[in-house]
Design a protein around this nucleic acid. Structure first.
Lengths: 245, 245
DNA sequence: TAAAGAATGTCGCCTGCACGACAAACAAAC
DNA sequence: GTTTGTTTGTCGTGCAGGCGACATTCTTTA
């Protein structure tokens, strides 16, 4: 059960663009940086790319993680203006570069793609807007919980202990996604682990019971630990029964 | 000097859509609400509309203020899913309703409009993304200052005392735009007034010197008042000279 | 296998600012 | 006119959580 909420450019679409170049980027490399003119849009073939903004004081906020099949660099498409975000590779990546004018031609001739782009942008606008609400309305605990829920929707894989979030993200990365600091994430994740809501299975987070987890975000909840003594019984697949809050 | 950073649908574009209805909405009325299916997109002809998200606890965050000539309700265009934001009239408004399918047809036949929509969405994504960075990286003071700068870019009118922000917004509304509380806005605005950076001219904010004001957002600045004794000399149009920090 | 570097886990201090409470000023309604 | 509602201004209190500091564990590179 791997959900992906992002429409893609099909291979046929790509094929219709001439003069495409695919290049490799090393981990840590920038595909583009804020302050440079946006002359291309990009399609990620392999790897993971972090799209983030940077404040003058050096604080960063991750706006979007880009995964294979997704397009990025769209936001600066209209105006030939400077980019306002950074696109940095979290691992070694393969990226297809499409010159802006070519892409615009493509749009002009095939409305279906234009509509796809619109959908993609709408989706991101929705997500970023939602994050904005999150950051201002919720405390850091709920923000982290909601982030994990969102991640589980996008990268969740069912396993015997619940839903496994199939992406490796450091606490720092999680923190930058919800506008909090690394230590807070560590603490909160620790609490959730201690209280039996989640666990680690070789570096990946598993949410035991989605319903119980989602109940945590309901305001005015007691948020009592579902397990408050001893370790969780991983062996019993039915252990999350009766947890409905 | 009235800047408007939003591309519009031209009247010709509108004319090409049949079955358009224009309706009036009273102040406080909702054009649409979160949780309802998004079946139309809208064009604001007259008035002002607040697009905001609401947290379960009742806290709201304004994502966008819509002014005459602007399109709204776009973000839910793709999926026929539920809206996630509220569109509420700040005053009596006249709104043109365009059914989604009609609009999609329009898009399919005229790529220029599609591109305009893409530009509009990109712009908003940029702004919301920027707000997100703001909210997480800056303290409430800089957030408010930056908000005023943004507003002055969009609604600024030059006057003899500087730039007048030609929109009436309550402190609560300002607070909801930057994710802070009303009292903080009142205090900060008060400080800025006392220190001579801004003043009120019949309920509208005037920024005296843009350069001095923008310098306030530079981190590590002393932020000394530009006038720390007595009232500002409004009569002298050259009084903002020599304020370059 | 050592050494350097990341990532995690934990603690305590300190402060920004949310929030409640209230008064004053203003606007709208009656 | 009076009344009612809205907006602004101001002051304490309280606490969430940012931040520095440091130990520990895991990972990578030489």
């Amino acid at each position: 059960m791997k959900l992906n909420d992002s429409p893609l450019l099909s291979h046929e679409d790509i094929a219709r663009i001439s003069a495409i170049t695919s290049s490799m980027y090393k981990k840590g490399a920038f595909v583009f940086q804020a302050g440079t003119p946006g002359k291309n849009i990009y399609l990620l073939n392999k790897g993971r790319i972090k799209l983030y903004r940077l404040s003058p004081t050096g604080k960063e906020i991750t706006q979007w993680f880009c995964f294979p099949g997704e397009v990025f660099g769209l936001a600066e498409l209209p105006s030939n203006k400077q980019r306002s975000i950074y696109a940095q590779c979290c691992e070694n990546c393969e990226v297809t570069t499409i010159p802006l004018n070519q892409f615009k031609n493509l749009l002009a001739t095939s409305p279906e793609i234009a509509i796809q782009v619109i959908e993609q942008l709408s989706l991101r606008l929705k997500i970023v807007g939602n994050t904005l609400l999150n950051v201002t309305a919720d405390d850091s605990r709920s923000r982290i919980i909601k982030l994990l829920i969102r991640l589980s929707k996008r990268f969740g894989v069912e396993c015997n202990n619940g839903i496994l979030i199939d992406v490796v993200l450091t606490h720092k990365e999680l923190a930058d996604m919800v506008g909090t600091c690394r230590q807070t994430v560590t603490t909160m994740i620790g609490d959730l682990k201690r209280d039996g809501y989640i666990e680690y299975v070789n570096h990946l987070i598993v949410i035991h019971s989605m319903s119980a987890f989602e109940a945590l975000t309901i305001p005015g909840q007691t948020n009592a630990p579902i397990v408050n003594k001893g370790p969780v019984q991983y062996t019993n697949p039915g252990s999350d029964r009766g947890l409905n809050i």
